[in-house]
């Protein structure tokens, strides 16, 4: 599960402002869930592939990797719906989710995280009235986006290590021997990162408006 997945290319999709792409993603999600029919889900998936592979010229491997991370889960979902609902429902559910996962992958692959965060900062600008600094909101989002793949990787590594030793740390013993130490490690990691950020001036108040350096003012 990789979210920091920017693929640099010179394409029209890359040049669309991040806000526009996020809006398109939101609209796609609403449409796909509001109209749960096979043609719409298939068209959504086809459209996402055309935009991603065609217009944005992303390597197929980068999208395939995203699809691979959810393949078992999609397969399970398909079997579940095929058994308990019916085949069309199963197909719609799976195609729709695949389309959304790939659409999110296209947006993340064509948009720098900094751009994405800038959109949120812009949306949060009115909160300044309540003493909220939009730059801090951008920082916390950027950190969460970075933490997700790190956590997924660490969890995978532990699962693999346990499988290699022929055991599984399930139940309460697993909580005591793996989950809590992992959580404590992660808390320490978060603390270390925050100290590193502060050392680089993350906690500084931004310079007041209008007091720019002569270079930028000129």
């Amino acid at each position: 599960m990789t979210l920091a997945l920017y693929v640099p290319r010179q394409s029209a999709v890359h040049r669309v402002p991040a806000g526009g792409k996020l809006l398109a993603l939101a609209v796609l999600a609403v449409v796909l869930f509001a109209v749960p029919t096979l043609p719409v889900a298939a068209a959504g998936l086809l459209g996402v592939l055309l935009v991603g592979l065609g217009a944005a010229r992303l390597p197929a491997a980068s999208l395939a990797r995203q699809a691979r991370t959810v393949r078992w889960w999609l397969a399970g979902l398909f079997v579940f719906h095929a058994l308990f609902s019916d085949l069309p429902t199963a197909a719609v559910t799976v195609l729709r989710l695949l389309a959304l996962v790939l659409a999110a992958a296209v947006v993340t692959a064509t948009t720098r995280v900094t751009e994405m965060v800038a959109v949120i900062e812009w949306l949060c600008a009115p909160l300044r009235v309540f003493g909220v600094r939009p730059a801090r909101i951008g920082l916390v989002i950027a950190m969460a986006l970075r933490f997700i793949p790190v956590l997924a990787e660490r969890a995978d590594r532990i699962r693999e290590a346990q499988a290699a030793r022929g055991g599984s740390a399930r139940g309460l013993r697993g909580v005591r021997t793996t989950v809590t130490p992992l959580l404590v490690q992660l808390l320490q990691m978060a603390h270390t990162i925050s100290e590193a950020l502060d050392a680089r001036g993350a906690d500084d108040e931004p310079p007041a408006r209008g007091r720019r350096s002569p270079v930028t003012a000129a």
Partner: peptide
């Protein structure tokens, strides 16, 4: 503090994972 932001980001990521 930045430390609090890092903890907040960490738990948002934990819920995601």
């Amino acid at each position: 503090k930045t430390k609090d932001l890092a903890y907040i980001a960490l738990f948002a990521a934990i819920i995601a994972v």
